[in-house]
Amino acid sequence: MGILSSVGALFFHFCISLACTNHTAIDKEKYYNVFASNDLNSINKELAHIQSQTFTEKPAFEGALLMKKAAVIGNPKDKLAVFKDGNQKLESSIKNTPNNVEFRFLRFMIQENAPGFLGYKSNMDADKSMLVTHFKTLSPEVQKAIRDYSKTSKSLSPALFQ
């Protein structure tokens, strides 16, 4: 019985350590509210929180928020550098998990609002199709974010997500 107790305790600590290091360490509702804002202070705070965490989806969420930050900072040289950094992280995440609908939503929002000179609009149709097709498979928080975004989107309408 002593051996089983030791094994059980070891297994418990192993499970706890996995739970603490491999979960989505962000509050999705808060993330999408910050993303929807143009408040640089809120964006920086959320970025700092994400950057301090360890979770599988971190590069995608960090990348998208960096790209959003690029839209609200003042210096044009900094804008491009921050955008490129975020772009690399988000696109790498999508390349590694091409069927992740939430990552496609992040990219869709960025592409729809990116200035034309960046040439970052080529995946909008495919991402939109994926969003509409797989909407009901997403978490309630992400569904809400998509519905909220569709109210101001030029390419999505709320009727698509009923």
Rank of each mutant, 00 (worst) to 15 (best):
L4E: 04
V7G: 06
F12H: 11
F12L: 15
H13G: 11
H13W: 15
H13E: 11
C15F: 15
S17E: 00
S17A: 13
L18P: 10
A19R: 12
A19C: 13
T21G: 06
T21L: 08
T21E: 00
N22K: 15
A25F: 06
E29N: 06
K30A: 12
K30Y: 08
N33S: 15
N33T: 13
V34F: 11
F35H: 03
F35W: 13
F35N: 05
D39T: 12
L40I: 14
S42M: 13
N44T: 02
K45V: 02
E46Y: 11
H49A: 12
S52M: 05
Q53C: 08
Q53Y: 01
T54K: 12
E57W: 08
K58R: 01
F61I: 07
G63I: 09
A64V: 08
K69E: 14
V72K: 12
G74H: 11
G74W: 15
G74F: 15
K79F: 05
A81F: 08
K84I: 12
Q88G: 05
L90A: 00
L90S: 06
L90E: 02
E91G: 06
K95S: 10
K95H: 11
N96F: 10
P98A: 04
N100T: 07
V101M: 09
E102C: 03
E102N: 09
F105N: 00
R107N: 15
F108C: 01
M109R: 12
I110N: 01
Q111I: 02
Y120V: 12
K121H: 11
K121A: 14
S122L: 11
M124V: 08
M124I: 14
A126C: 05
D127A: 00
K128D: 03
K128Y: 07
S129G: 06
L131P: 03
V132W: 02
H134Q: 01
F135M: 02
K136W: 01
K136A: 00
S139I: 06
P140V: 02
P140M: 04
V142L: 11
V142C: 09
V142W: 07
V142Y: 04
K144M: 13
A145Q: 07
I146C: 02
Y149T: 01
S150N: 04
S150I: 01
T152N: 13
T152Y: 05
T152P: 05
S153G: 00
S153H: 02
S153L: 04
L156E: 05
L156N: 07
L156M: 11
S157D: 03
A159H: 04
L160K: 02
L160I: 03
Q162E: 12
